[in-house]
Nucleic acid binder design. Structure first.
Lengths: 374, 374
DNA sequence: AGTCACTGAGAAAACGTTTTCTCACTGGCA
DNA sequence: TGCCAGTGAGAAAACGTTTTCTCAGTGACT
């Protein structure tokens, strides 16, 4: 029989044999080392070309101790907000020659631990995007995940965080409604253990202290279009004239649900979203929301991670050569003084006024509605 | 000085040493081999637990020759259609314990080659989602990418393809407009080398032969919201009363552009999209479109790839309890005979009538409009 | 002419697993 | 007691690279 026609993919050994040199030399040539004779180098390159040789990334990663791949964990890939963030990370990482491994926990906090660990081990670092796990769990997990960057969540261990000023954003939205005459507001809250939800609540609290004549009712909500849709009746059961939804998705669901109930927006009720996802400008009516630079959020997360992965020239003179000591640098830097560690970045939001908000109705609408039991 | 406090991550060797056994035994225990003594096994497990040992996936992949990771190449992560497909693949793959590496070519066909090859080499297989490269390039590339599954594109080499019946879909949309009285139609076409665009054109051609009294004008378009927006004036320059957009994104852009021009939809002009992306039901007016089961598209792509990766028992009765056998069902269902090679799956679409289409205007609208030069 | 620095390439170790091969040991049976 | 099958675990090869170490060869300088 024949010679077992090429059972396994061609490797560096084949190239070496063909070029009549050693593995080492082939490796040197492929990696652009200039310590190889011109003629030999070109011979190797020719052999590689003829054999269509491409180095196996696995072997390469193992030897190099890095895979130029990072993991990104998101709570739900169906959510446009996370899609946008993921895209921001991916684009920015690609720019620097890195790839992204996606992990979707499907809004299941208990899965996050495993997914994050796995994603981390398969790459050089990981980005946790709005993880839903508890603070304790996050603290436990974070040290083992380094290099790690968090989005919309913080951890004590000096882990870089990229986040959005939700408190300020929702306060501004509330102010916007207040300025339109709304005094009775409702908030469709997000997941219990969502950090960004807590921030929104803080912002609203501040709003309430600043505007004593305003009232706020907090309704249990969710994070999806469906939960917004489902909340329509509950919203109508309140006396609120302005509703702040947890995010655009919820707001859009609410809009849809209200429409089915024959409620006019913003005539009867004003609605705001949050995030300014791509299509929030094209709902009917277009959604008033707080713009979040989602792509930049991802991009910045990558920047941070990249800095962690390449702790290159930033330190002062007399930098030591041992790469392992940068751990010490990191530990040290997290201190108070203005050393190498960057502050956590917080993105500001901007109120984007569209059609879903308008002046508070003049008549007392509540009297016309059935206060649903509860 | 100290003992060089754990410079590298702990490996199988550390566990072996601690448990007083060899690497091999640790490996056996970790992989659930039953050929290990109970007491030793538990000792190993204890050691692994204490050391918080997790096998390095890189080493594992190298030895096993597989990484349980696949690559997915999409033309543009910003496009909700591809997001949905990606999600479908990712969810389904995760169900089977696989991860997804994303590669976004940013609608740059020349990049696809490199990105696809890289993604392929880093994983066990790859899904090419609507690649924009030329047929020749695809034919060249496909053999080197196996195991490979194509979405909305075909290749000669027996590569499984999962696709959408765009021809039928757009024909049905055209019929829908025709039934509403529209006779002069326009098509905002997609990318030149998009296979799905060609299919749409074929479907429209068939429509024209079936409806000799209808006319169609083909306008160069694009794939994005922006291109739809930009095409508004050009559309108005035609005498068309019904416009078929390449996809929902373009249709939404067009809607937006038309709105700015003061054109009423569907009063003055009817508009259709394609794909039924998540938010097309919430534009103003809601978009009439053809529903494409995007998630299923991705899911099915994964099924196919999975079948290629695990060419396991599919023959004969004595069905195993493994739930994965439904792959065989699918293959059988689409094939002529019950053989192992699955036919390409084609998903049907369904016209989703919403608010953006209506009866053709009674008056000859063209006379009221300025025929723009060209 | 002899040493020395230098250049360039091969041998071998390293990365962290899995798996085949090999062999020591145990117990049953003749 | 001696043989044999069977069990279970260690040694070593394999996966495909990169990189350190080593050393042969070359030219220059004293």
């Amino acid at each position: 029989m024949e010679k077992k026609r090429q059972p396994r993919r061609i490797g560096i050994a084949d190239v070496a044999r063909r070029a009549g040199v050693s593995h080492a030399t082939v490796s040197r040539v492929m990696n652009g080392s200039f310590t190889v004779d011109r003629t030999i180098a070109s011979r190797v390159r020719a052999a590689a070309e003829e054999l269509q040789y491409h180095p196996n990334p696995l072997g390469r990663s193992l030897a190099l101790g890095k895979s130029e791949t990072i993991g990104v964990l998101v709570p739900d890939l169906a959510n446009p907000m996370f899609q946008a963030v993921l895209r921001g990370v991916s684009m920015a990482a690609a720019q620097d020659g890195y790839r992204v491994l996606i992990a979707d926990s499907s809004e299941t906090p208990s899965e996050e631990h495993i997914l994050a660990s796995d994603a981390r081990r398969r790459g050089d670092g990981v980005v946790l995007c709005a993880p839903r796990m508890s603070d304790e769990e996050l603290e436990d997990l974070a040290p083992g995940l380094q290099p790690l960057v968090l989005i919309n969540r913080t951890s004590s261990g000096g882990t870089p965080t990229v986040s959005v000023d939700y408190a300020d954003g929702i306060r501004n939205l509330a102010e916007h409604l207040y300025a339109l005459g709304h005094r009775r507001l409702a908030f469709l809250s997000g997941p219990e253990n969502s950090a960004s939800n807590r921030l929104r609540l803080q912002g609203l609290e501040q709003f309430l202290t600043e505007r004593p004549d305003a009232s706020l009712q907090i309704l249990p909500g969710g994070v999806s279009f469906a939960s917004g849709h489902a909340a329509a009746l509950e919203v109508l059961a309140t006396s609120a004239t302005g509703v702040l939804a947890f995010n655009d998705l919820v707001a859009m669901g609410l809009l849809s649900g209200l429409h089915e109930q024959g409620v006019t927006v913003p005539g009867d009720l004003s609605v705001t979203g949050f995030d300014d996802i791509e299509f929030s400008g094209y709902t009917s009516p277009p959604l008033t929301t707080a713009t979040v630079p989602l792509n930049q959020l991802g991009e910045q997360a990558w920047r941070r991670l990249h800095a962690l992965l390449n702790p290159k020239a930033d330190a002062g003179p007399g930098a030591d050569a041992d790469p392992a000591t940068d751990i010490a640098d990191i530990a040290e830097a997290s201190g108070a003084e203005g050393s190498a560690v960057p502050e956590n970045t917080v993105f500001a939001t901007q109120v984007q006024v569209r059609g879903s908000t308008g002046p508070a109705p003049a008549d007392v609408r509540t009297s016309q509605r059935n206060p649903v039991t509860r």
